[in-house]
Design a protein around this nucleic acid. Structure first.
Lengths: 227, 227
DNA sequence: CTTGACGAGTGTACGCCGTACACCTATGCT
DNA sequence: AGCATAGGTGTACGGCGTACACTCGTCAAG
């Protein structure tokens, strides 16, 4: 009985890809805070230290997770103009980020770009250049877009908090915020932006920026700063 | 010898304010990752658990730190038009955030707004309203500004990384990024945005947005979405 | 067939973290 | 004088990331 082909003592062996995908799934299911090396190992029926044969440390695990989700963004699709091409890709990125709510915060926490992110940003820069923006303008435009390039704006505060009714004393202390909440409440909302149509807000800012870029391009904008 | 007035066995007693200010100082000096309850207690010559008489837990400590730095933002100053008033206040916020580099990430990590942040946002909303923007437009405008309202855009990646020379193979793989880096390199830069003039990039996006808002206001913009 | 290198998974252990809980002690009011 | 209270202490627990030494199955070379 040296062979144990029938007995399931042999699990399919680990590899970096399985580790990363399990990590993404675990973060999707239980939130990024609950993702520890120990919990992840447990999920893979393995002892914690086994993970370290496939990722150097937790930072590298997080980097890999970022690359995994960035890899889910749709490739470029041609559009009638540069703006709609960029717009479509960014909205695809947004859909990906909405599938993985933890990803935005993890991306922000990385200190350096990972290969998949670099590739994505590179192709984005290419879209701007192809659209006729100068290298100079493209540079500033990429900065101006910031994390919106990756499909999210940091919402400043959790838009779906359990914040109850505004309360009159709060309205007295923060009258303008109360007013905004009231206008948004027409389609179901809570005090500081809860219940807003996030998708609308995202596209509002995105289009404002894209329109601004196009207008700068038309007028041959160039940065006025000199050496 | 029941009195020990001469002996310095009595340290000036702790209070929430001293704790918060020590925490801010420690984070400024050693970075947010090095800020632990134990290190902070040590800094205050106190046993770790003593801190919990003044803050409920670490989350509340971080909330208090956020309020402390937000409180450093200059109050509103009147300007010739609403845009310069808003612009000035935001640039003040930016200066504060640059003094406390850890603050942006901590603010992003809070799940709900703290009182000082609410007060700040409220007065910002008031500036937009006073400038003639409708409550509706003000709402979307606040969202569009996102964290820029508080003086920072998430730079997507550390702009001052130790990333060495671009390297030709990197330029081959990411040609557009290399091109942007090259144009930025005219005033000292590194590959992915390192060495850029962050202040310029920030104001570029800020002004683009403010100009867009003003133009929407002039044309009496109203959100097209209906019930 | 033996051997030995090697890659994958294991087990133990260390030092850090946040914090619950019981305790002490000086202060100040009744 | 008695006592409640607020502020600081000490101990302890469970969780974290991970260094380090190990075992064991596989497979190529001799």
């Amino acid at each position: 009985m040296t062979r144990q082909e029938a007995t399931p003592t042999h699990r399919t062996p680990l590899n970096k890809d399985r580790v990363l995908r399990a990590a993404v799934a675990l973060a999707d299911a239980t939130g990024i805070d609950a993702l520890s090396m120990r919990r992840l190992a447990q999920e893979l029926d393995v002892v914690p230290m086994a993970l370290y044969k496939h990722v150097a440390n937790k930072e590298e695990l997080l980097d890999g997770m970022v690359d995994t989700v960035v890899g889910e963004i749709d490739p470029l699709t041609a559009g009638p103009d540069w703006q709609s091409a960029v717009r479509g890709r960014i909205l695809s990125a947004r859909r990906v980020l909405l599938r993985h709510p933890w990803a935005a915060r993890v991306i922000e926490s990385r200190t350096g770009p990972t290969p998949a992110v670099l590739a994505y940003l590179d192709s984005m820069a290419g879209s701007f250049r192809d659209g006729g923006l100068s290298a100079d303008l493209t540079h500033h435009v990429m900065h101006a877009m910031g994390s919106r390039l990756l499909g999210f704006s940091q919402e400043l505060f959790d838009t779906s908090g359990p914040s109850g009714p505004p309360g009159p004393e709060l309205a007295a202390r923060y009258p303008h915020i109360a007013e905004l909440a009231a206008t948004a409440a027409h389609d179901g909302s809570s005090p500081v932006g809860g219940g807003c149509d996030d998708q609308f807000e995202f596209e509002f800012a995105l289009d404002l920026l894209l329109d601004g870029f196009e207008s700068l391009r038309c007028q041959g904008w160039t940065s006025a700063r000199k050496a």
